[in-house]
Write a protein that binds this DNA or RNA. Sequence first.
DNA 1: GAAAATCGACCGACCATCCGGTCAAAATAA
DNA 2: TTATTTTGACCGGATGGTCGGTCGATTTTC
Lengths: 213, 213
Amino acid sequence: MGTRANPRKDERERQIKEAALHLFSEKGFHDTTIQEIAEEAGLGKGTIYWYWDSKEDLAFSLVEDMLGAFLTLLREAESWDLPFLEKLGYLVHRAARLYEEKKDHCRLLWKFRADRHYIFNPDYVKKVTSYYREIRKSLASVIGKGVEEGVIECDDPHYLALVVLGIAEGLELEWLENEGFDLEEALQLVLGNLFSGLSRESSREHDSRKGRR
Amino acid sequence: MGTRANPRKDERERQIKEAALHLFSEKGFHDTTIQEIAEEAGLGKGTIYWYWDSKEDLAFSLVEDMLGAFLTLLREAESWDLPFLEKLGYLVHRAARLYEEKKDHCRLLWKFRADRHYIFNPDYVKKVTSYYREIRKSLASVIGKGVEEGVIECDDPHYLALVVLGIAEGLELEWLENEGFDLEEALQLVLGNLFSGLSRESSREHDSRKGRR
DNA sequence: GAAAATCGACCGACCATCCGGTCAAAATAA
DNA sequence: TTATTTTGACCGGATGGTCGGTCGATTTTC
């Protein structure tokens, strides 16, 4: 029994996601109502439930869009054939560009991040957590190659990945909250100095801080 | 109408704040109910409204406790009579200790931060924003003294303060989310390399990144 | 090719529930 | 007794999700 294809499916999903992204990123999960999303999309409330199972479900698809894009970039970076420091610089450039392109997604992730456990049910939380873990692993692998190359000294690339992601997130926050803040410039400044510190310290005999745990 | 002082006032406020801190920091603002706070404090729901005007009001007093403590530390630091790099190192030490002591406050601030505009009414938001502004100003002043001392080169201490706070917040997040992450060590590593980069670059002739906007 | 039958996208009134805040009354202290 | 403190039943507003129904488009039938 040939079920009819829905010719408007893509357009509807786009409409709804666009409206949801706009509202969630501005007001957070709890203060955005399905009613508002429907209104902004120019559709009836019930229509949203035709395409998604729940408010949670809709929200998650937006989270996944961003985390997936970022993870994809990192995976790509793992295979770039560049000297470590250049690779890192280019990665920062690409990441900053991605953030710029998906600024609303960034805002949304930020709003959801703190209490993702109380927005999402355990299954979704597991998925989100797994994205973050994969992101850390991928970055750790990039850093690990830098260690192999002998460019930096670091006993625990996974720890350093954590630090780098922390820096990135903190600066991302400043970028979101301060008009005119140049995210890429700040990242290059801080990470540049961090890694040049880690490489210099490995040639001199220095104190004990070498990105170990 | 000689109003009697309420001998239980302090104890009650402590009980309620303690319960609220615990619940807000764990579940965020929206998913914590007044009922739950009252239960955990071992009091009736109405009693909370004897001591505070609203849920918002109670939440704000906890935010203020932390922001106030941090700002006080920074103001103190402004008056320490130490060479810049030592002052900064000690400040990081003290800040890390404060965070450790008030870890639940940190969690709470973090949960509230993203959507403070939708938790608090405009008056409270103004107060919170003003705390953050004062914190930036105070840190910028500390950094400014480092510039005056000639220890670092930096065209815009206010911008650098933003970057440093971003780093601190990002690493704070990793610390909150990763058991065993040593916040002070990470901060010293990253800020140490950042500032030693900024001082080295000012003695050599280097490229254009010098913590300017 | 026109009428009839079927389908499925869409709608929005409605329901069940939740929760911040109120208040009258009870308990306690002075 | 009077003033203060505490309580929790109750109120009203809000909202996520449901579901019966509509209607235009597609398919079938003649």
